[in-house]
């Protein structure tokens, strides 16, 4: 074989890897975005909406709904960014955005996440606020580990890190907010940056 053939082989390998698992290629940048949204949302909540030490946060109060609204906004923005960046990349590679890989990934991600979400809402309903951050981290971690079976290995480690953080958080009541900021903000930015560097290394193949 000539040099040219080897090059074609590598191009073919890269193309197949990309087309069969697009989701991995953009999780880096979308991870950084998700982390930033979480930190902005968290800080805003902390400075403007958090109950003062002498106040109580009541289920159903305006403040409560504002906090929930911000949390939902962070979630929706993160997902929208991930979808936008992924479909842009998919178009570049002439791949379909919705196929078996996507379907499996989304379903397996949602099962633990929705379970956790419903559980947390039920707990809030009965005035159990204390473990909210811990439960969010743990269920989100489980969702990531579960989804990792349908994408490349790295997301699993983020999931495990979130689960461990969630457990530590449960052991330190009162610091839930800070653990939440670390888990959803910092961890996403770290993970996103590592993935971004790896993506850059991988695209080195193309040239």
């Amino acid at each position: 074989m000539t040099n040219d053939n080897y090059l074609k082989d590598i191009g073919h390998i890269k193309d197949m890897m990309n087309r069969s698992s697009r989701f991995i290629s953009l999780s880096g940048v979308s991870g950084i975005f998700a982390g930033c949204y979480a930190i902005i949302g968290g800080l805003f909540t902390y400075y403007y909406l958090f109950p003062k030490p002498h106040e109580q946060l009541n289920y159903g109060s305006t403040k409560f709904f504002e906090i929930v609204l911000i949390a939902l906004l962070v979630l929706v923005l993160s997902i929208a960014t991930a979808i936008f960046l992924t479909s842009r990349k998919a178009k570049k590679h002439n791949a379909k955005i919705w196929d078996i890989t996507t379907y499996r990934l989304v379903i397996n991600f949602l099962i633990p996440l929705v379970t956790g979400g419903i559980y947390i809402i039920l707990k809030l309903n009965s005035q159990h606020y204390g473990l909210t951050a811990s439960l969010m981290l743990i269920f989100y971690g489980l969702a990531l580990v579960n989804a990792s079976k349908y994408t490349i290995g790295n997301i699993k480690y983020l999931g495990i890190a979130e689960i461990i953080l969630g457990l530590i958080c449960a052991a330190f009541p009162g610091y839930g907010f800070w653990f939440w900021m670390i888990g959803f903000g910092l961890f996403h930015i770290i993970y996103g940056s590592i993935m971004f560097v790896e993506e850059k290394k991988a695209s080195h193949w193309e040239s």
Binding site: H12, I13, M16, M17, S20, T101
Partner: peptide
Amino acid sequence: HRVRLGIMSVLAVNE
């Protein structure tokens, strides 16, 4: 062979 290379590429990044 191109096809075998393709199979391995797909299976390397998919469970």
